[in-house]
Amino acid sequence: MDKIKIENLDLFYGEFQALKNINMKLKENMITAFIGPSGCGKSTLLKSLNRMNDLIEGCRISGKVLLDNEDIYGSIDVNMLRKRVGMVFQKPNPFPMSIYDNIAYGPRTHGIKSKSKLDDIVERSLRAGAIWDEVKDSLNKNALQLSGGQQQRICIARALAVNPEVLLMDEPTSALDPISTLKIEELIQELKKEYTIVIVTHNMQQATRVSDKTAFFLLGEVIEYTDTEKLFSTPKDKRTEDYITGRFG
């Protein structure tokens, strides 16, 4: 089933067209990777999927992004959209507060006050974020005292705490060491059972390891979008082949 459908999406930053007529379908419970050189539009498209670009001055969007067939640029409540479509950023950005409060923050803003409910959510989210065992005895510790890899998993757990349906990840491991990267990659594979995941990555080995489908972007266009294995073994477009084999430019 298609979780997200992108139809004829154009995006401008002022006069600059960052995305050109994007048409894509993202399947439910699948991991889709966006790859391409810097400035190709992949992060812009990712941010368009939960309207993070709304905050940027001079940003104009036309076309549709349908989440379960509902246009997210229509009359949808943006807060509710961002609850359903969570985001994990490149640099771990835990709030300067305890591990517990980091995870409970989202549920609290959505009105959950009960201590036992919050306790449950915190444990479930930290388990889903594959970090429970490492922090269960120090939930009151400031999250900023954790390592980078742990902080990123806290951020993933925080995103999961509000029960999203889609998880957007913008280069989630580019600031992490190889072991932390592998942990996050394994976690992403686990999470796909429950969530639809879109990941922007500069690491092509990562795209091949974690994703089911890959889209290659160049100058604001989707050049090729197909099964990851196919894209990395028999790409159809020469520009894709040139980029993934490092003969680009």
Binding site: Q205, F232, S233, E241, T245
Partner: peptide, 9 residues
Amino acid sequence: QHPVAGDLR
């Protein structure tokens, strides 16, 4: 080199 595509083939 982690070859892909034509290089890997």
